[in-house]
Design a protein around this nucleic acid. Structure first.
Lengths: 260, 260
DNA sequence: AGAGGCGTTTCGCCAGGCGGAACGAACTTG
DNA sequence: CAAGTTCGTTCCGCCTGGCGAAACGCCTCT
């Protein structure tokens, strides 16, 4: 059980949002709270600026400031919503953690991760990790499937980066070679020289109905669990590709739904 | 000073809306609250459903339910915003209370009133009063200036009313006679047989730039303060008309403003 | 004039909310 | 690899904050 006064205040505030103005008597009927209690709560909310009690406008009403209590809420990206169950399913079946990343300027950022669901994770947590686009599997899987104009734009941005992992942006022909290879294979992995070396990530792109890349889906494993990277890729790349295709279909269905 | 725990919870919730996810450490830095306190507040908000702490998504974040804390907030109608200072000014100068009403289905509703600013008010409060369209000055001033199609629609609605003050809707020719008279005069007053008889209201329409009626503006006085209704109308009808014209201009300016 | 309802204030009560200290886990640094 | 630092959480004694029944003043209605 939490702090009683806070629970009550939220209940009162929620109730006040159900009609343009309200009275002590009405709130008493709706919430069951004693009137002296309501008066104290409303006085607190009024002094903090969330409530107004101007007789010119009728009883108590919520003020503009209540917007600040919800302005930061944004529904999660649909691709995360679509991908979540598939990521969880793969971790349940194969134990290794799976994550979904989205582009954020010059890197991808992990927006969902099943690390907490996995008992064999090389990392404690990966959500919110910012992963470079050239050297990390999650980043390269995204970059490789961007449209040509977007690809060039991103390369321009990377050239201005001071992150050593973006250094290769100054050698576009090398980046192009990697990108072509990834497009051939349909998946990307971490560059061999990049730490930590006791783990690796295999990643694939998630495309939308128009064939535009929306996110990357990756599985991370301990390198010691496999004889070679090729062995791991042979086993998991098909699993990730199939899941990404399913996520694309679910994403299309979600986008068409009137409830979103 | 209000309830301390409530003030703190609102402060934490506001801070959480400033970034997609946050941590105990970050909230401690931003609010100065001790970490055990923050943990208790967040636990309370989480149990109530306003906050989520899913490690798959990164730190603490606000949930969809915070929308219910602000969903009822709506900016007041612009015509009230525009009209408020003029209403207050008239009450300051002439003592009598002035109000602004807007259409709500088959009646007008007082959305703003300077009763609290007047020492000579026949009523304790009038905000939220629902005034019939045919028999009350505020209602008739609105009805008389509606467009023909809207007028017919409203008359249809009034015919279905069981309010005795709407009875005249069954005699359209009588309503039309009243309406024509009001359009001639440019103002309306309360029907003589309607209580309370110790007071009366003179009302004029507030039109927008297109000439559509947006609201009515009315002044209420004690009938005993004047020798006749004609005397009161002669004194205050011009004042109300001038104010309504100014409100129309202010409304136009507000509508053009990018900040609204 | 009296009854009923409204919003507000009072005040004694007691347990709720507090925060420093301590703890375990994870990360960073040398 | 060990030590130090930081994080999030739990503990627990303290004390005053939040509580609500009762009372009050005002307004409305009959």
């Amino acid at each position: 059980m939490g702090i009683r006064a806070i629970e009550r205040a939220m209940r009162v505030l929620q109730e006040m949002n159900l009609q343009p103005y309200t009275s002590i008597s009405h709130l008493h009927k709706r919430t069951g709270l004693p009137k002296p209690t309501l008066v104290r709560i409303l006085k607190t909310l009024e002094e903090a600026g969330y409530v107004e009690n101007d007789p010119r406008l009728g009883g108590y009403q919520v003020s503009a400031l209540v917007s600040s209590l919800s302005s930061g809420f944004h529904k999660e990206p649909m691709v995360v919503e679509a991908g979540r169950p598939w990521a969880i399913a793969i971790t349940r079946k194969h134990q290794w953690p799976v994550s979904i990343s989205l582009l954020d300027r010059d890197a991808v950022v992990v927006r969902f991760s099943t690390v907490p669901d996995s008992s064999m994770s090389p990392f404690h947590k990966t959500v919110n990790m910012r992963l470079p686009l050239i050297t990390r599997g999650m980043g390269l899987a995204y970059l490789a499937f961007t449209a040509p104009e977007e690809f060039r734009l991103i390369l321009d941005i990377l050239r201005k980066s001071d992150d050593p992992e973006d250094e290769l942006a100054h050698h576009p022909e090398q980046v192009l070679r990697r990108v072509e290879r990834v497009r051939e294979l349909g998946y990307a992995t971490r560059s061999p020289h990049v730490e930590p070396r006791n783990s690796n990530t295999i990643a694939v792109p998630i495309l939308n109905d128009d064939g535009r890349v929306m996110a990357s889906l990756g599985l991370t494993y301990f390198t010691s669990a496999f004889g070679s990277e090729a062995e791991a890729c042979e086993q998991y790349a098909p699993v990730l590709k199939a899941a990404a295709a399913q996520i694309s279909r679910d994403l299309k269905r979600l986008s068409a739904s009137p409830l979103t």
